[in-house]
Design a binder for these strands. Structure first.
Lengths: 227, 227
DNA sequence: AAGAGCTTGGGAACCCGTTCACAAAATCGC
DNA sequence: GCGATTTTGTGAACGGGTTCCCAAGCTCTT
């Protein structure tokens, strides 16, 4: 009984939450829960229940009114939709602090991600082992991609090298890139790029902290002009 | 000449892009550019120019028609708005692979972030040095916060410990948390939380890769039913 | 078997953010 | 000076996402 209705047309915002549901469902399954309500799943995923129901309705009608969702079945359905039926192989470019940390990260396995290779440009790092992977030269990128069949790449290099790395990845056939380097990459339209910028995240938090502080000390007015 | 009009009411989406503009402006300044158009800034930040103008208009009128924006002045204005006039001090909780990588990250300084302390629960890690910081016990968290005056925290622990750490941070007075642990944290409403989930990012990329693959091999139709 | 109590699915309203398009304002060339 | 050119700032249209709300449908109790 596997029904996939309209596998296209899932809104981006929903797609971005599917991994959260998947993680939450795994958690609930481990707790021995066989079924769960949208309310329950929402709490576990950290969103509200209306959005859970709306999101899941985009995949099809997998719930039972008055009861909830079958945890194992729903998990397998979402896994099918996101293509997590077999692990996604990923190549990490950059074996510095961050690249090493990612290569050694134990949490990937359970989430359907498998680090297939680590490459770097620094001759001093090539041949060393990080997280159980021997670092290979970035010049072998095309070979590595072909041999391992990876389809996802993580860029964990200094910003100055990121564009060059991205170009090499695209040339090697990679179409999906997760970029940790704080740089705007220029890529062909058919390449899917996601960006993680830790310093930017902290600045966003800083803005709100700043506003909180200003609001509590100053008068909570709206206009401040200094000339 | 410092004009801050309506420092409140900046849309969240705009706030999230201000750090990108700041980084882009720093880059342009280093290239010796004194002024830049919205088009130029947009390219450097990786967004489109209409949104740059709209965003900047929320801060006030800092551009000159027919000319563009003064790079240094605009940078200082944005820095003031996000509260980056002095570095944000941050405490990193968790001295594992990821925590160490963040502690050693060289890119924070230029972005107005300063790692003030690193703490961990593991006795074997306490006293060791990561990224120039001696790891202190998580039990000293309240002291550390008081002594250093940090206002931002990064959680880089296993998911199982994250909620406990978050509670301790809140108890110590922290109101802004960046969480790398893949868990939904339950926090008071006045605490600002941002989440980074690398595995989830990869799964999102995986979904699109999956769809691409299906679209190019299968007939590019919309309905697939298996019973 | 029928009523009470849950919980899903989804229509509809609402809100926020992006894009479009253009008037206003500045510079440049002549 | 003055027209041509550039570029900002912003109103208006558009689109997508979230929230509200409730009928439909399931289970459980009596």
């Amino acid at each position: 009984m596997t029904i996939l209705r309209n596998p296209a047309g899932i809104p981006d915002a929903t797609v971005a939450r599917l991994p959260l549901y998947l993680r939450a469902l795994d958690e609930l399954a481990q707790q021995g829960k066989g079924v769960c309500s949208s309310e329950h799943l929402a709490a576990a995923a950290g969103v509200n229940s209306a959005i859970v129901r709306k999101d899941l309705s985009h995949l099809g009608s997998y719930g039972t009114r008055g009861v909830g969702y079958d945890v194992a079945f729903l998990a397998s359905q979402i896994a099918t939709v996101v293509g997590r039926t077999q692990p996604w192989e990923v190549v990490i470019v950059g074996a510095g602090h961050l690249g090493s940390a990612l290569a050694a990260y134990q949490g990937f396995g359970a989430r359907g991600v498998k680090v297939a290779a680590v490459v770097d440009a620094d001759p001093r790092l090539i041949g060393t082992t990080v997280g159980g992977h021997v670092v290979r030269s970035i010049d072998e990128l095309a070979d590595v991609v072909e041999q391992t069949g990876v389809s996802l790449a993580i860029i964990a290099t200094p910003p100055a090298s990121a564009q060059g790395v991205a170009d090499a990845l695209v040339a090697a056939g990679i179409r999906s890139i997760l970029n940790f380097a704080p740089t705007a990459l220029r890529l062909p339209d058919d390449v899917d790029l996601r960006q993680v910028d830790v310093a930017a995240e902290l600045q966003i938090l800083g803005y709100h902290a700043h506003r909180r502080a200003a609001a509590s000390s100053d008068a909570p007015a709206g206009e401040a002009v200094t000339s």
